[in-house]
Nucleic acid binder design. Structure first.
Length: 896
RNA sequence: GCCUGGGUGGCGGAACAGGUAGACGCAAGGGACUUAAAAUCCCUCGGAGCAUAGCUCUGUACGAGUUCAAUUCUCGUCCCAGGUACCA
């Protein structure tokens, strides 16, 4: 045995062993319980970074742990290979997205292999291969057949200078990231998946995912955003009611109880009525200018929500159906065309946004709900709605300083006066329904999924546009529509597909017209990642999207592990896709992931040079909180600490660690640093400690091997041992087995599992074990057999975490079969308990003393011992004892 | 802005279900071994105070509250991160 653990030698040895013996190949075996373990596949951005290493290490430990627990484990890996960065890299480096992508895949595959992950590499997939995306195209056609896809006009970010569409990420403060030109909004015809058809189902099942973190299902629920309310029609003044719906404005509101307080109306700037309402009024120009201004603004919800609320009077009025009040119609930037009906009835007295808007534009405020003073609302701080002048404690529109949105009693509401608002809600809706002015409706915040991308590096959308036949699906027999690889990315970032006649020009499959045009848009890359996990079950299946039997055996994914940043989009889209496949009767389940672990982000500060833009950490010199650029010497701006990403270059390449310490220590360190769900600001200061620990175990194994030669390890009951040291070590070992098992089973807290093993190792070191032959002879056979048991279990417990190291030590200890094939250790209940327990004593809640007692002591004895304690007596003094609380076998609190 | 998390020593973190705050490790300081260094081993290590073998006070972002007892529960505030529909 070498003096130290030598990763270079040992790790390649075992990696070869696993590969040559196909240890991690998975196949359907109905006699065994299956376990599908999946980590989110990476985008091949260049090299793996610490976020990947952390994610995949966590997954690998679980995979190996489950294997040791007797499961038939499927643990695949692949590449989310389409996407925008390949295009940007192609432009920057004058290469081809495909070449860049495949290069990266090769690099990253090698890196992953060096980490010793237990993947079944035979199942590797890359989504940019026609053999993969042809089934995505096939599914698109199926969905088109069933009207699950449709086309509509929608906006994209457009740079007039670059003549190209920009992703939200490419828009920086309303400007194009390439040329700095002001970004416009442009309307295009685009494809949408009808995910909203499944809104209710996706929502309901959020509560039927017990294996998901609650925070994720809560986020999804809020994202879907179901709200129950009413749709109400407001007549437009001076228009006939019956002009094809043009005579009314329909609003969606969750507060029909406040209808009598609606004093103005707000329409989304894109609302079809805005233009016609203002036409011919003196507001026409102002409205046109406003609409134009808004159309230039970014459309992401984070941008929209942070713009100052503003609007313009359209010059037209509508009538409140409840009280006949004339209400000015505004168009306002906070009314969203995508939500509800694109129109909002504004009730300034009871909605804060409306209140602010009314104050800004001097619009009427009418109070229609008064707080119910008979109920003491303890949650409301006193008087926040009152300015002190209204002595009756009633809201007064002229003096109120914020909207009142809490429950209360209706006023100024005709026949509904005096009614509690929750009751009024349904009463008013009933009345509207009877009058034909409204109805109860449900609205969702979730929008249909726009999948068209005006990009090159993606899955071509398999439809043809014909002047005679319109949109014609590509016949199934023509699939795949292969993305032409002899294309050059345009300097401006635009897609070359529309310029490639050989791709674009085609015959209409329906009427044969020779001037038909292929759709040159590609699909959102989230589409590929919405079903890759099902493809892994039968990656080579070439006559169907997947092999039904294989899918039946492996799906659903038992444990999915990935970054919390995917909590909404990717995970929701995947759930949606399974519903689509279910509806198409291709699968018989709806939920893809039974258990989910969302890993916290690995983050690091960004570095930005005024000359060279974002810098990699190694491109800057940092000292004393200041950074300078290695290339030009400029002062570098040290930015916020954010998740590692290639585009911001705040990535740590694990290669340095890997070269210096090897895979196992890198793995150990990643796990030891923090529990998986927690974010991690990168810092490799602790790695030395992991290195030391591994070598401590290495030396310990050597010592134990020499002193326990020919000794059977003890596995019997605790009562079979006499020596107190042997007993202690035996108990500690069983406690450690339990702790490590519970930490992995419970919530994957490997950091505390590792700590527990460290404690056990420390105990063994403190036992003065050694290799001196004379002294070995003096050590009792009992201790030797427990030591043999302990070291064996230490290696087993560590084996999923540091598998190369464990294999090597395992072999050294004289075992013939690889440790990956060993069963996970089991602890003995009878060996967990110690004879003595520690009781702490508090006086008035403050710790004053502690003592050990026999574990079998009664509460009463513990109470007496505590009261008799010298320190305790001192603190009680002559004060009378009010109460003594005894927490069983743990604590006594004496209240005086 | 909105939704979801998080905030504990110099640092990463621990604390089962309200019951000893700081396990385990890093860094730092001191010591042993060594010609020396590395490696290894041992000790100290939240802050403050004092009559300093020890004891007392204080301390889990901040401010209130519930409780015999709060890092843990409730309310409010601040800060940080993730998502916000074309980054993946």
């Amino acid at each position: 045995m070498d003096e130290r653990y030598n990763p270079e030698k040992v790790e390649s040895k075992w990696q070869e062993y696993w590969e040559n013996n196909h240890i991690f190949r998975a196949s359907e075996d109905k006699s065994k319980k299956k376990y599908y373990l999946l980590e989110m596949f990476p985008y091949p951005s260049g090299k793996i970074h610490m976020g990947h290493v952390r994610n995949y290490t966590i997954g690998d430990v679980v995979a190996r742990y489950k294997r040791m627990n007797g499961y038939n484990v499927l643990h695949p890996m692949g590449w989310d290979a389409f996407g925008m960065p390949a295009e940007n890299a192609a432009i920057d480096n004058k290469t081809h997205p495909a070449a860049w992508t495949y290069d990266n895949i090769n690099t990253m595959r090698n890196q992953l292999k060096k980490m010793g992950f237990s993947y079944d590499w035979k199942r590797e997939i890359a989504t940019c291969t026609p053999s993969y995306y042809r089934w995505e195209q096939w599914l698109f056609l199926k969905m088109l057949e069933k009207d699950m896809v449709y086309r509509k006009e929608s906006y994209v970010n457009w740079c007039g200078h670059c003549q190209t569409v920009l992703a939200n990420e490419q828009v920086e403060e309303d400007l194009c990231w390439r040329c700095g030109e002001m970004v416009q909004q442009k309307k295009l015809w685009q494809w949408f998946f009808r995910i909203t058809d499944y809104a209710e189902d996706l929502l309901i099942h959020c509560d039927k995912l017990p294996g998901w973190p609650e925070k994720v299902t809560v986020m999804q629920k809020n994202w879907i955003g179901k709200s129950i309310g009413s749709e109400i029609s407001f007549k437009i003044e001076g228009r006939q009611n019956d002009i094809a719906g043009e005579g009314c404005i329909n609003v969606f509101t969750t507060r029909p109880d406040t209808l009598f307080g609606a004093t103005f109306m707000c329409l989304a700037p894109e609302h079809p009525l805005v233009e016609s309402l203002s036409r011919g009024t003196d507001q026409e120009k102002a409205v046109a200018l406003f609409v134009e201004k808004i159309s230039r603004q970014e459309r992401s919800s984070s941008a929209i929500e942070t713009y100052e609320k503003e609007g313009v009077f359209t010059g037209a009025w509508c009538i409140n159906p409840a009280n006949g009040r004339r209400m000015p119609i505004y168009t306002a930037n906070f009314a969203l065309m995508e939500y509800g009906t694109g129109a909002v009835m504004s009730v300034p007295a009871h909605d804060q946004r409306d209140f602010d808007f009314a104050k800004k534009y001097n619009l009427d405020i009418v109070v229609v709900i008064q707080p119910d003073r008979t109920k003491s609302d303890t949650n409301q701080p006193e008087n926040i709605y009152f300015d002190g002048q209204s002595t009756q404690g009633a809201l007064d529109a002229s003096t109120m300083t914020q909207a009142f949105s809490a429950p209360g009693i209706l006023v100024n509401s005709g026949q509904y006066n005096g009614m509690p608002n929750d009751k009024a809600m349904s009463k008013i809706t009933d009345w509207l329904e009877r009058e034909g002015l409204g109805k109860k409706t449900v609205s969702f915040r979730l929008r249909d999924w726009g999948i068209s991308r005006q990009r090159y590096w993606g899955t071509p959308i398999p439809v043809i546009h014909c002047q005679t036949c319109g949109v014609v699906p590509v016949p199934e027999s023509d699939l795949p529509i292969v993305l032409p690889e002899d294309a050059h990315l345009l300097e401006n970032g635009g897609s070359p597909l529309p310029t490639l006649d050989f791709f674009k020009k085609t015959d209409c499959p329906k009427c044969g017209r020779t001037d038909a045009r292929r759709d040159t848009d590609t699909m959102d890359t989230f589409v590929e990642s919405s079903w890759y996990f099902i493809r892994y079950c039968s990656p080579d299946c070439d006559n169907a999207m997947f092999d039904k039997e294989a899918v039946k055996y492996w799906m659903a994914v038992d444990q999915y592990i990935g970054g919390v940043e995917h909590a909404i989009l990717h995970l929701l889209y995947s759930r949606y896709f399974m519903r689509v496949l279910n509806t198409l009767e291709l699968i018989d389940f709806k939920e893809p992931f039974t258990n989910l672990l969302t890993q916290g982000m690995v983050s690091k500060e960004t570095l930005r040079c005024p000359e060279h833009g974002y810098l990699f950490p190694e491109e800057a010199l940092i000292s004393e909180g200041k950074a300078t650029c290695q290339k030009c010497g400029s002062d570098v701006e040290i930015g916020r600490v954010i998740k590692m990403s290639k585009s911001k270059k705040n990535v740590i390449d694990p290669n340095d660690l890997l070269n210096k310490y090897g895979a196992d220590i890198t793995r150990l360190f990643c796990l030891f640093a923090a529990p998986p769900e927690k974010g991690l600001e990168w810092n490799d200061d602790g790695v030395e400690g992991c290195y030391r620990f591994i070598n401590r175990v290495w030396r310990l194994a050597g010592t134990c091997m020499e002193m326990t030669q020919g000794v059977e390890s003890y596995t019997g009951p605790l009562s079979g041992l006499l020596d107190s040291d042997a007993k202690k070590l035996y108990t500690k070992t069983h406690q450690t087995i339990k702790k490590v098992t519970d930490d992995i089973e419970g919530n994957f807290h490997f950091n505390t599992a590792i700590s527990a093993v460290m404690e056990l190792v420390n105990v063994m070191y403190s036992m003065d074990l050694n290799t001196d032959q004379l002294q070995i002879q003096q050590i009792s056979p009992e201790i030797k057999s427990v030591v043999a048991f302990s070291i064996r279990n230490i290696i087993l417990l560590l084996s999923p975490i540091v598998p190369h190291f464990a294999e090597e030590v395992w072999e050294y200890l004289g075992n013939l079969n690889g440790i990956t094939e060993q069963p996970w250790p089991v602890y003995r209940e009878d060996a967990l308990l110690t004879d003595e327990i520690l009781v702490v004593v508090q006086v008035n809640g403050k710790l004053r003393s502690k003592f050990s007692v026999d574990a079998k002591s009664s509460d009463d004895l513990i109470r007496q011992t505590a009261l008799a304690d010298e320190m305790v007596q001192k603190h009680i003094g002559d004060q009378p004892i009010k109460k003594v609380i005894v927490v069983r076998k743990k604590l006594v609190n004496i209240v005086v």
